[in-house]
Computed example of a mutant assay.
Amino acid sequence: MPEGDTVWQTAKRLHGALAGKVLTRSDLRVPKYATADLTGRAVLDVTPRGKHLLTRIEGGLTLHSHLRMDGSWKVYAADQRWSGGPGHQIRVILGNTDRTAVGYRLPVLELLRTTEEDRVVGHLGPDLLGPDWNPELALANLLTDPARPLGEALLDQRNLAGIGNVYKSELCFLLGATPWLPVGDLPADRTAKLPALAKKLLEANRDRPIRATTGLRGQDLFVYGRARRPCLRCRTPIRVADQGDGSRERPTYWCWACQTGPAPAPGSPAAQRFRPRTTG
C-alpha cells in the first residue's frame, strides 16, 4: 500500500533511472496531454513530497503523479520485458537510452510549470521524510481540531504528509490509543512524542523492501492486516472496522485491550462496512 516510505523509494528509483539523462521516449496517455512531447529534454530530478511525486524536466516543466491505492511506477532496462500490468493500464512512459519508466494505473497525472508546483502540493503539511520536516508545526496542525478522531487527523495530509492507513493503525497501537480517540484527549506525554514516533517509523522503512514496525522476526506489523489474529502483546483478537464516511475503504485495525478510547462495537455499521477478505 503506497505511503510516504513507498513513495520515497519510488522517487529514489526513478531518480536513479532518469535524472541527468535526456528523454528519447515520451508518451503521456492522458487525453489532456496526449500531444505533449518531452523527448529531447533532460530529467533534472524526481522528488517525493508526502505521497506525491514530482518529476522535474528541463524547460521548467514538472510531471506530477500520485499513486493512491493502485498506482505504481516500474523501471525497466532497455531489453527487459514490461510486467507491471496490461497495456491499457499504462498512463505514462518516459525513457532514455538505458532505462524506461512506466507508470501504471496512475489516478493522478498532470504536466505543469515547475513554478506552479504549489498548486498541487502547497497544501501539504510538513513531510515526514522531507527537508521541510517540522515536528512542532506538525503537532500544532494535529491539535488544531482537538475533537477530531486521532486516526482521521493522522491521515489528513494537511497536518503532516506521508501517513496512510497502515501507519495510522500502527501509530495508534504504539500510542496505546484507538484511532477514534479525539486527538485532544491523547495524554500529553504521548502527544508530545507522536511526531518523533511517526518520523522514526517511516525513516526505518524507507529503504526496506518489506515494511516492519515491530522489530520481531516473522511478525512485521502489530495490528494492520491482522484481523481476528491474536495481539502480539496481549493475545486479544485484533479487530477491524472502517473509519471515515464510507466514501472509500479505510480498514482500521486495533486491539481493544491495549488501546484505550472509543471504537465501533462488533456488528456496528462501521464494523460491518469493512469485511476483511482473510481472517488469518
Rank of each mutant, 00 (worst) to 15 (best):
M69G: 09
L67H: 02
K193E: 06
W180K: 00
Q9S: 10
K51P: 12
R56Y: 02
H52M: 05
G244Y: 00
G16M: 00
A204D: 01
P276C: 09
E116V: 07
A271W: 12
D27C: 08
K21A: 15
R208D: 02
Q89R: 11
L38R: 14
R233F: 03
R25P: 04
G16K: 00
H123R: 13
N205A: 11
D245M: 14
R273Q: 14
P251E: 06
A78P: 06
P182Q: 13
Y224C: 02
L143D: 00
R99Y: 12
A36G: 11
M69K: 01
E58V: 10
A204P: 05
T252S: 15
T39A: 08
H123V: 07
R229F: 03
D127C: 02
M1G: 13
T115I: 08
A177P: 03
Y224F: 09
R68M: 15
L174E: 07
S72F: 05
H52Y: 08
A161T: 03
L28N: 08
A212D: 07
L128T: 08
P135S: 09
L18N: 09
L18W: 04
A138L: 00
R105S: 13
T114N: 01
R208N: 06
G151I: 10
L216H: 12
D189I: 05
R226M: 01
T35I: 06
L23G: 02
V102I: 14
G59S: 01
L142D: 01
G261C: 13
P107V: 02
